[in-house]
């Protein structure tokens, strides 16, 4: 929370963050590395969000795409979809973005620690889970078997090329990727994410599972997890909603009686099971 000059805590007052690096992984996505202008570090847990804004345009809720275990900068990936995200993605190194947060309830690291972990990420859902992936890789001894499923619509939509190269080569992570539609260059898996479950036999019923992706993906992944006998309380779902204020007031992101922005965006599937509006 930020205090204004008159001494009131103002939940809407953003902090300035300087853009120190950018890249364009796809035509519609931009990857930013940011640093707070006052050089303090952002204290967050994987799965938390930021309200990222450009003054004069507005704010958009964006998951943090890097791990708190890495340096005093942090990453976000923004997809150009509307007015605000277009404005954000027109900013470059040396410019500022205005952020509020970290906000929301991220991954309960204590629930994951000591267990096998499977992350299922679809499309831009890889961005918020990248925070968790890096975290686990940086503290590899604290976790059991680590598997990552990643799917995109087509090869051009695949994000984090360097990361994926590293994951493919690494013994620390069992990485599988797929695309819905292949192109001439593609030699890997073709098919939606749930098809990856048939390609690896190493998901134990005690695995902690994290799912992040488009709403249409959840249902089919959950069916596969049910077949594997993974209980609902061990499945964590990162949801997307219109988290306009980020502080549980404006009402846009409500899922039944919960606010996605403060009660989530990460929920256990056991919790979501009780919420008719979640999936």
């Amino acid at each position: 929370m930020t205090k204004d000059e008159a001494g009131f805590d103002n939940i809407f007052l953003p902090r300035e963050a300087k853009i120190i690096r950018t890249s364009r992984p796809t035509p519609s996505e931009k990857h930013f590395t940011l640093q707070l202008a006052d050089r303090t570090s952002l204290d967050f847990v994987p799965g938390q969000i930021l309200e990222v804004g450009v003054m004069g345009y507005g704010e958009s809720p964006i998951g943090i795409a890097s791990s708190p275990t890495r340096t005093d900068s942090f990453d976000i990936v923004v997809r150009t979809v509307g007015r605000v995200t277009t404005a954000i993605n027109s900013r470059d190194v040396g410019d500022s973005l205005w952020i509020r947060g970290p906000l929301g309830h991220g991954f309960d690291m204590d629930e994951l620690r000591g267990h096998d972990v499977l992350i299922v990420a679809g499309g831009i859902g890889l961005c918020p889970t990248r925070s968790l992936i890096q975290y686990i890789l940086d503290r590899r001894d604290e976790f059991g078997r680590f598997t990552l499923f990643y799917g995109a619509r087509d090869p051009l939509q695949l994000l984090f090329t360097e990361d994926r190269l590293e994951w493919r080569r690494s013994d620390a992570i069992d990485y599988h990727e797929t695309v819905d539609r292949a192109d001439a260059t593609w030699t890997g898996n073709v098919g939606v994410i749930p098809t990856l479950f048939h390609k690896t036999a190493h998901i134990s019923p005690d695995t902690r599972v994290v799912i992040c992706g488009p709403p249409v993906m959840f249902k089919y992944v959950l069916i596969e997890l049910d077949k594997l006998g993974i209980p609902r309380e061990n499945i964590f779902v990162d949801l997307e909603r219109r988290m306009k204020c980020g502080v549980g007031k404006c009402g846009h992101c409500q899922i039944n009686d919960k606010y996605c922005c403060i009660d989530g965006p990460v929920f256990t599937f056991a919790k979501i099971w009780e919420l008719e509006e979640a999936i």
Partner: peptide
Amino acid sequence: CFDVRDSWNVDQTSGQRTRYWDACLTREFA
């Protein structure tokens, strides 16, 4: 419930962020 919108002053460098009442019955709310 409220919506938040930004607007510019005529100088096109300064402006304001404003909240407006919103209504969860309206079509695009969620």
